[in-house]
Amino acid sequence: MNELVVRTTGLTKRYGKRAVVDRLDLHVERGQIYGFLGLNGAGKTTTIRMLMGLIHPSSGSVELFGRPVPAERMAVMRRVGALVESPSYYAHLSGRENLRVIATLLDLPEKRIDEVLAIVRLTADAGRRAGDYSLGMKQRLGIAAALLGSPELVVLDEPTNGLDPAGIHEIRDLIRSMPREHGITVLVSSHLLAEIDQMATSVGVIHSGRLLFQGPIDDLRARSRGHVRIEVDRPDVALPLAGGLPLVAAEAGALVLDSLVPGDAARLVSALVGGGVAVYRVEERKRTLEEIFLELTGEGAVA
């Protein structure tokens, strides 16, 4: 296994009796783009705040690069860049001056400011007041700030929130290029599965504070085995004819089967027709990631 850049153990945050984050074991490996997926209010931001040492866990622990946070926060944070929730900026300062404040704190040269401005394509607007920026520009300024210290780990909390499609596309490309071009590990949170699907290599699905799934996004996709749905006029007659096949359910007017090899499908249809059952429609339905996500979170809600 690769080096774990982020590792939480039983991470829990309670407000009163309610556990906003519940025994989370997050594992982010070096070089991954880890998509942290969950609905609004699932506990994503609270988790990220604990990763950054901004709030203290009720129990459990956080390790970044194998060092405990917040205990060794000062030593570790030089290697981390973060955009926590909404972008933070001084409205009265220009984009460049905002970055200069951080560059001063991190003791970075002016050249680095030019570099990150170029990366997020804000060079032309660097002199304007950040308060007058559009939402997309503010978001990009926040990402520039996260990249400023040449971090090894970038944590982006809902970086595409409130952006238009073009802006989303741009930021997605930027995130995808980070591991490749700069060797950066990325942890990106979102409530949109489609977005995570398009950039993440690994996913963690959080719901009501619990981690429901964690692993390669392909494993999540593998759950989307297809179903074959056969609409018939008399399911009660059809049911015995499908004997021996992986039957999932017989609903009103239809048989639902686990994915069939083509030969089985042909044999079943011919058996149905031979048995006097009218077959209206045979369709294969692949579950989308969206459905898997909803199923996961549905389970989570029930549990």
Binding site: G53, L54, M77, V84, Y90, I102
Partner: peptide, 14 residues
């Protein structure tokens, strides 16, 4: 007002 505490204390800033 600019909600910069969180950004600042996500840096190695005491």
């Amino acid at each position: 007002r600019s909600e910069t505490w969180k950004a600042m204390f996500s840096l190695p800033v005491s």
